[in-house]
Design a protein around this nucleic acid. Structure first.
Ligand code: ZN
Length: 350
DNA sequence: CGAGTTTGACCAGCGC
DNA sequence: GCGCTGGTCAAACTCG
């Protein structure tokens, strides 16, 4: 379709100026398009780089997981239990096997009484009960983590004016995973999301990040579930290793006889805090056992320049506002904690 | 009409 | 045993 041929009768001069004007506009539009294209290409490059970074994170996490599994199998389990195969099987969910357990929560609870079956009961119960709590700043009622959730209850928790909501995974029938969502009593902008259990179905990419975190945490806590002082010390070391992360991003471990919990603090520090404060108090205070609660220790990185700290705050805001990146980050950190027991002083400086 | 949410009831664990 | 609390159930309700 020739746009200019329609008005070709007479008025040649005005047509020429019109043509020139149109050509100028075209050149301008082309420049604009090129500029936009360049911007988009730059963004694409950035995204590619980010994607590659995340990929390498995932690869590292997988390698460390395999290494940890071998380590547990060779060094830890022989000292702790005579029933190796059962425990090792419980580490499998991190590999996101789609054929994993089909037991429903009810099945576990009803068919299986831990008091009647010593080790296996304790192991299964702790696996099911191992929790990962994520603290993140969010205005939304729930951080999106790629999974489908159905709310099945809400309660007012003691010591917190904000209600606690209970969700279960509805991506597959019989999926065990549940989560609790509650706002922090001290800081209402902080959303505390606690995950429990392992998915028994394939997950979307974003959901896999969080799922692998809970599995890694469960596995880690499982390896320390016999609660010897040696394990406690190892957990304390886990906290110190994470000190190489930005100072606002902390991880803590707590364990009770029934609900061992890993807490990831993704909240940025308050701007008026120059020295680090203990970033949070455990939300489940009534569950905490003082003997094995691991305090959130001050981190060792105080040498961050203030300009960098501002940059860090901005980055934190960006990170916490992007659920996909957040879950990926959480997954990576969770897995790194999981591999801590074998990577003493290792390569966690990413 | 089906899926999801709300909300009071119910149950189990725990401390006294 | 009793009361408190956290967690779950399920009927009623809402919404698309
Ligand atoms: Zn699920």
């Amino acid at each position: 379709m020739d746009f200019f041929s329609r008005n070709s009768t007479g008025h040649a001069a005005s047509n020429n100026t019109f043509t020139v004007h149109v050509k100028e506009e075209q050149v301008h539009q082309d420049l604009q398009l090129n500029l936009n294209l360049a911007i988009l290409q730059a963004e694409l490059e950035n995204m590619k780089r980010e994607n590659e970074g995340l990929r390498s994170m995932v690869t590292q996490v997988k390698e460390k997981y395999i290494y940890l599994q071998r380590h547990i199998q060779e060094n830890i389990l022989p000292h702790e239990t005579t029933n190796n195969s059962k425990v090792i099987n419980l580490l499998v969910p991190l590999e996101m096997k789609t054929h994993s357990r089909v037991d429903s929560a009810d099945n576990i609870d009803s068919k299986f009484d831990p008091s009647k079956d010593g080790d296996r009961g304790a192991v299964e119960a702790s696996m099911k009960r191992a929790r990962v709590a994520v603290r993140a700043r969010s205005d939304a009622s729930m951080i999106s983590d790629g999974c489908q959730w159905r709310k099945y209850g809400q309660k007012m928790a003691k010591g917190n004016p904000c209600p606690r909501a209970y969700y279960r995974c509805t991506m597959a029938v019989g999926c065990l995973v549940r989560k609790q969502v509650q706002r922090c009593a001290e800081d209402r902008t902080v959303l505390i999301t606690t995950y429990e259990g392992t998915h028994n179905h394939p997950l979307p990419h974003a959901a896999m990040a969080m799922a692998s975190t809970t599995s890694a945490a469960a596995s880690m806590l499982l390896s320390g579930s016999k609660s010897t002082s040696d394990h406690l010390n190892r957990h304390l070391t886990a906290g110190s290793m994470l000190s190489s992360y930005p100072s606002h991003l902390t991880t803590s471990l707590a364990s009770t006889t029934t609900f061992p919990t890993v807490t990831l603090d993704l909240t940025s520090p308050r701007p008026d805090f120059h020295l680090r404060q203990p970033p949070f108090h455990f939300p489940f205070s009534t569950n905490m056992h003082p003997n094995i609660n691991v305090p959130n220790r001050p981190l060792v990185h105080f040498d961050t320049p203030s300009s960098d700290r501002e940059l860090m705050n901005a980055a934190t805001a960006a990170v916490t506002s992007d659920p996909n990146f957040m879950t990926a980050l959480v997954a990576a950190i969770g897995s790194i904690i999981g591999s801590d027991t074998c990577n003493r002083g290792g390569d966690v400086n990413n």
